[in-house]
Amino acid sequence: MSMARTGTRPEHIRPRGGASAMRKKTFWLTTMMLPATIWLLLIRYLPMFGIVMSFLDYKLPTRKVPFPLNLLKSPWVGLKNFQFLFTGESLTMIRNTIGYNALWIVLGLLISVAFAIMMSELSRKFLAKTYQTMMFFPYFLSWVVVSYFLFAFLDPTNGMLVRSQRAAGAAAVDWYNTPAYWPYILTICSLWKNTGYSTVLYLSAITGIDRSQYEAAAVDGATKWQQTVHVTLPHLKPMIVILLIMNVGKIFNADFGLFWSVPMNSAPLYPVTQVVDTYVYRAYTSTGNVGMSTAAGFLQNLVGFICIMIANGIVRKLDADSSLF
């Protein structure tokens, strides 16, 4: 990119046929961008103006006052829509969102890097390949399907765990009404579904490392552990950093499907399953409060944006090559 911008272009990208050919080329290439550009403007950029609704007492559109015009009829209420932030309910959901994300970022990183390193040390490549294929499988399933998988174990009447608890003479746990277990269940589900994916990513980075570096280290008497610490991990660092930035940037975004369909939308579990995304959706569908749910969504995006900027800024200070932008 920098080459194209400087005045002295290398021979092969200098335009041929002068300015008119250049204009023609720019024109045709721009027409290619049009479909997706229109989509981006309509579905991604236009809603950004909708953020204004978080400062309005939103009036629903009617036949007489159709959609964009009803905004003019909605009175300005300042920060009133943000008052929800100071309720106990919203503190819970913020704690849940950030807490789960932070925990899963750390656990996911440790487990998948460890798995990838173990996998790369297996001598039977066929088995390693088989493990990889099996581990990656859950990544391709929807949370709705996963919720059925879980249901097969926890269903209050027929679930396998419930039946075996009864068979053992113990009182069966009413899983879908007992919040205490869900932080663990959700953690297991999240790791179960995503570990395979990140393991595969790290494994492909490890496979790309030049083997001669390990040989050199071995000749110098490095143990396998020392090789891992001094050869493998430094090579994985850029990827770890990039995935960390991306995840930290998304720390205020939760996986809607996981928190909504896996606990079967069970109300008694809300204290431990309510996250920003489900809160916005439930606030909107139950109360129809557009102003407040827009405000919550806006805060979510704003915090996410700030997080990703800070994370990226820190990384750029430490190691410019690893930063995202």
Binding site: M48, F49, M53, G249, G297, N301
Partner: peptide, 19 residues
């Protein structure tokens, strides 16, 4: 659009009411 957006509700209103 990867790092900032209008959020669920504005997107929903644009898609449903406008489009």
């Amino acid at each position: 659009t990867m790092i900032f957006g209008g959020g669920l509700i504005p997107t929903y209103i644009v898609c449903k009411n406008l489009l």
